[in-house]
Design a protein around this nucleic acid. Structure first.
Length: 564
RNA sequence: UGCCUCAUGGUGUAACGGUAGCACAGCAGAUUCUGAAUCUGCUUGUCUAGGUUCAAAUCCUAGUGAGGCAACCA
């Protein structure tokens, strides 16, 4: 009996697991697995599964662990390159599989043995029907299937045929091994599912050792059992595979464990797509710059954009886990990113669209140093010195010649504060021949330093950032925005349309910004907040030492309604 | 015209027969040397119809809607 407060499980799966632990099922152990097929890059949808499976292991320590298992049963699609990227992505998210790294291909021999056992016990048979015949005889959603003429072959004949399949005597497609279950089942997965097929393909790990390969439905439950997985968690589309999962666990003799499968809804996110096929299409058609394009919802993409592992984990936790196919808002993810970065990112001044300001009453050749706070959320981050002189840049957005209502930045004749410097008053707007504004001539008030309020003039409502012109760095800034311009591109496209029609043409804008000189030494992969603008990340791939390139991770929230 | 699963504010979730709560978004206000952050307040919800019960988001029945299922993919 414990008087410790009972922390309520957060979702139906954790509830189930807590009950299993309480009942000492599996000796109170919780062993989960994350089982990607190494045929592509991981995305945010996978992150949800990773956070669940590895999170469960952490929550139930010390009697818990999570395996990383590559489900590499289809050699025609899998590559070592993907194995490496998947490992890197899981690590980046902050999880570790310890020494529990597995490959389904490591079990090929055992899996073959189990198949022999099933055949010997009359639970599987070799079928000579063609692919088309198998398909036709499976029946439809409303009509039962028709038994194969080869369904009643003797175990002895099946054993011989299966051995010869392995030996490579038959051509691809000539024969398959099927589980003998129920051709009339309302569940199509139980109509004698194929469990082995002939594939004369080179496997990324087993090479040419095999020419028959197990199907997912067969390999998965048995791999789970071999690893003594207790809870096999997957997405909803595998719900109908559960009876087959259970059938195999029940019919194969000698398994070291009896795992069970539960299903949860996959992640959907607004303004993006989360399907390997569609992401692949974007890459192949050159609509993005690659799998790690910062616009992509891939783990490698968001990492490069500057999203943080902590933010992704927090997001996965708040979306929760249910069986309802919900669509989460990008805004929630962005909130999680800002929340993390606000606490940790160093502040820096950056002017995206420079507008020159000349302080007419500031000494011609003087350069002073102003002390700026590195992170108001974290005093230990200290301060830095930034130069200030007669010629400055401010953001063009911070000046309006004909201001809209409630605009409280710089206007002709108006006054704003240059943050941590002093207040300036706009005296004159200088134009070029075509009427474009090229420069603002302003005066500054020395008495307004250190936050002192102007005397004898109205209260200054605006505070803006700035950089000293002579010392400013010209830096490439990649302004990333949402990938699609509609919340649900797949739905917008409907059955016949093309989701790529809804790509956001403004998802990337490249600018040359003026940044304070302190960022000259910024290495690749560092987070910053450009004050009043947004969070930025030095591109880990294209940044050179001394020549950083910044990716906009996410803009700051902006409650000023912009008129564009 | 089959089977399986699901249905709580705009969005995501909690409530396990007994006060519909939280977060995001939105809207106000306070505060602010970031129109950020922070703080306060507000708006908005149990798919429908029956039933069981003193009492239903919760249990039952039917309907409606959504997702999934007919690869030798995973």
């Amino acid at each position: 009996m414990s008087d410790a407060p009972v922390s309520a499980p957060k979702d139906f799966i954790r509830e189930l697991i807590a009950a299993d632990v309480a009942a000492q099922r599996n000796g109170g152990w919780v062993i989960t697995r994350f089982p990607p097929e190494p045929n592509g890059y991981l995305h945010l949808g996978h992150a949800k599964s990773i956070c669940l499976n590895f999170g469960l292991a952490l929550e139930n320590a010390p009697h818990a662990r999570c395996h990383l298992r590559f489900d590499d049963t289809n050699p025609t699609k899998e590559e070592t390159e993907y194995v490496e990227s998947i490992k890197a992505d899981v690590h980046w998210l902050g999880f570790s599989w310890g020494n529990h790294l597995y490959f389904a291909s490591d079990y090929f021999e055992k899996l073959y043995g189990f198949a022999v056992q099933l055949i010997a016990n009359g639970f599987a048979y070799v079928d000579d029907q063609t692919l088309e015949e198998v398909r036709a005889n499976r029946g439809t959603l409303t009509a039962p299937g028709v038994s194969s003429p080869f369904r009643d072959r003797s175990p002895a004949e099946n054993l011989d045929l299966f051995a010869r399949m392995r030996a490579g005597e038959f051509a691809e497609g000539a024969k398959i091994l099927r589980a003998k279950i129920d051709m009339a089942s309302p569940n199509m997965n139980l109509r004698d599912p194929v469990i082995y097929r002939i594939l004369k393909a080179h496997h990324h790990r087993t090479g040419d050792a095999w020419c028959i390969y197990p199907m997912y439905d067969y390999a998965h439950p048995l791999s789970d059992a071999l690893e003594e997985i207790t809870h096999s968690l997957c997405t909803l589309e595998f719900e109908h595979h559960r009876p087959l999962y259970d059938w195999l666990i029940d019919h194969v003799v000698g398994l070291p464990a009896k795992p069970y499968q539960r299903e949860f809804a996959r992640l959907n996110l607004t303004y993006t797509v989360l399907s390997k096929r569609k992401l692949l299409q974007l890459v192949k058609e050159g609509l993005v710059a690659g799998w790690d394009d910062p616009r992509m919802p891939t783990i490698s993409g968001i990492r490069r954009r500057g999203y943080t592992p902590a933010a992704v984990r927090a997001f996965c936790e708040t979306v929760g886990l249910t069986k309802f196919p919900s669509v989460s808002e990008l805004a929630l993810l962005e909130h999680c990113v800002r929340e993390d970065l606000n606490k940790n990112a160093l502040r820096v001044y950056g002017v995206l669209r420079p507008l020159k300001v000349v302080l007419t009453n500031y000494p011609e050749n003087q350069v002073e140093e102003v002390e700026l706070v590195n992170n108001p959320e974290d005093p230990s981050a200290g301060t830095r010195k930034v130069p200030l002189s007669r010629e400055l840049y401010i953001d063009a957005e911070d000046f309006m010649e004909n201001p809209v209502a409630d605009f409280f930045r710089l206007v002709p004749g108006g006054e704003v504060r240059l943050k941590y410097a002093f207040c300036i008053i706009c005296q004159e707007v200088v134009r070029d021949a075509s009427g474009g504004i090229v420069e603002l001539r302003c005066t500054y008030d020395d008495a307004t330093r250190r936050g002192a309020k102007p005397v004898g003039r109205p209260k200054v409502k605006g505070t803006i950032h700035w950089v000293s012109a002579a010392q400013a760095l010209d830096v490439e800034v990649r302004m990333y925005d949402k990938l699609f311009s509609v919340a649900q591109p797949e739905e917008a496209a409907g059955e016949h349309g093309n989701f790529t029609d809804y790509l956001n043409p403004n998802a990337l804008e490249v600018l040359t910004a003026k940044l304070e000189p302190s960022v000259a030494t910024a290495g690749p992969g560092v987070h910053y907040q450009f004050e009043r603008v947004g969070y930025f990340f030095t591109d880990p791939k294209d940044s050179k030492l001394g020549k950083p390139i910044f990716n906009r991770t996410v803009a700051l929230k902006d409650s000023f309604p912009k008129v564009k």
